[in-house]
Amino acid sequence: MDPRSEVLLRQAELFTGRVLLAGLPADDLLGELPDSLGWSWHAGEQATLAARFPGRSHFGTCPPLEVFTAAVLFLPKSRELTEYLLQALAARLPGAPLYLVGEKRAGVERAAKQLAAYGQPRKLDSARHCQLWQISVEQAPAAPDLESLAQRYELQLSDGPLKVVTLPGVFSHGRLDLGTALLLDHLDDLPAGSLLDFGCGAGVIGAVLKRRYPHSTVNMLDVDAFALASSRLTLAANGLDAQLIAGDGIHAAPKDLAAIISNPPFHQGVHTDYQASETLLREATRHLINAGELRLVANSFLKYPPLIEQHLGPCQTLAEGQGFRIYRAKRR
């Protein structure tokens, strides 16, 4: 059981009835609170919850339409995302309780101050290196318009400007990260056929691929609903189309890909986690056609070339700079 869930269950009498658990972990909490509902924006956790508790967890960027009488927000990493989620929940709970639970090291005490916009925060419990806070929603806000919270910027590329739209909580919100900037300079000569932007984030790589290779099918995969929503907005802003896929890792990708291009993720919440990236390197060959190509950017200190060569083929370093390297390998 996740320690945040354990803290909730120490106060289980507060969570009887129709309680919405927002951002809940994929543990047995829905089983312990049988009248509760889940809301997840993590495709992997949603898949687990849907399999164990059919019909009780909603996936997306907005709260489910079902009526709930209280809500618990499991603290996300991003302050901007926390602000959106609290407003979205408070808008549905006039006069009702809203709870916040999170790890101390994730900044739950700081985040509890964001609750003050809707009521008087009070700490209910502190255990398992986590804290539980509560307010009664005294002044319910209007439901937030997620798209109005987007940040927009424009990239000046060799084939013209590209508009980028990022939503709260999405990687590199409001700016182009250094790794992706380096990768954008090394997307020439990809093989013809279906392409995959793995860990698409705000959709920068996928949009560039579709514009540069208009006759290729471009697939854009991410675990996060807010990232997929951002990618959809970026594509629309540039008049482009691609296939958006919600999935937790490379196993959710199509087969018979001509190339996989990625600035792979290495964070899960506040924790560093290389599992998705390492699984990509191990399993890429299962998704690539013969002579299909993997091209990715990674921090220079990560020892990816041995993994690439073990599971895919000879690894070439195309470029290096700003603490990143571009690797290329073809399926043997």
Rank of each mutant, 00 (worst) to 15 (best):
A96G: 09
P97C: 08
P97N: 10
P97D: 12
L98T: 07
Y99P: 01
G102A: 09
E103D: 07
E103Q: 13
K104V: 13
K104F: 05
R105F: 06
G107W: 05
V108H: 08
V108K: 08
V108G: 04
E109L: 04
E109V: 08
E109A: 13
R110D: 12
R110L: 12
A111V: 05
A111R: 04
A111W: 02
A111E: 04
A111C: 09
A112K: 06
A112Q: 04
A112F: 06
K113I: 03
K113F: 11
K113C: 07
Q114R: 15
Q114P: 01
L115W: 05
A116D: 11
A116H: 10
A117S: 14
A117I: 02
Y118K: 00
Y118M: 00
G119Q: 06
Q120N: 09
Q120L: 10
K123W: 03
D125H: 03
D125W: 00
S126R: 12
S126L: 00
S126Y: 00
A127T: 08
A127Y: 01
A127C: 11
R128P: 00
H129W: 05
C130W: 06
C130T: 14
Q131P: 00
L132G: 06
W133M: 03
W133H: 11
I135K: 07
I135Q: 05
I135A: 04
S136W: 02
S136Y: 00
E138T: 12
E138A: 15
Q139I: 13
Q139A: 15
A140H: 02
A140L: 04
A140F: 02
P141A: 10
P141E: 10
A142V: 07
A142D: 14
A142S: 14
A142F: 01
A143M: 05
A143E: 13
P144H: 02
P144T: 02
P144W: 06
P144A: 03
P144E: 05
D145C: 14
D145V: 15
L146W: 11
L146A: 11
E147R: 12
E147Q: 13
L149H: 04
A150F: 04
A150W: 03
A150Y: 06
Q151D: 07
Q151G: 00
R152D: 08
R152M: 04
R152H: 15
Y153T: 09
Y153C: 10
Y153I: 07
E154T: 15
E154C: 14
L155E: 11
L155V: 12
Q156F: 12
Q156V: 14
L157G: 04
S158H: 14
S158D: 15
D159I: 07
D159C: 08
G160M: 13
G160R: 13
G160V: 12
G160D: 13
G160C: 12
G160I: 12
K163G: 06
K163T: 13
V164H: 02
V164C: 07
V164G: 02
V164N: 02
V165A: 03
V165L: 09
V165D: 01
T166W: 01
T166V: 06
P168H: 00
G169L: 08
V170M: 08
F171I: 03
F171M: 07
F171N: 01
R175C: 02
R175Q: 14
D177A: 08
L178T: 13
L178N: 05
G179R: 04
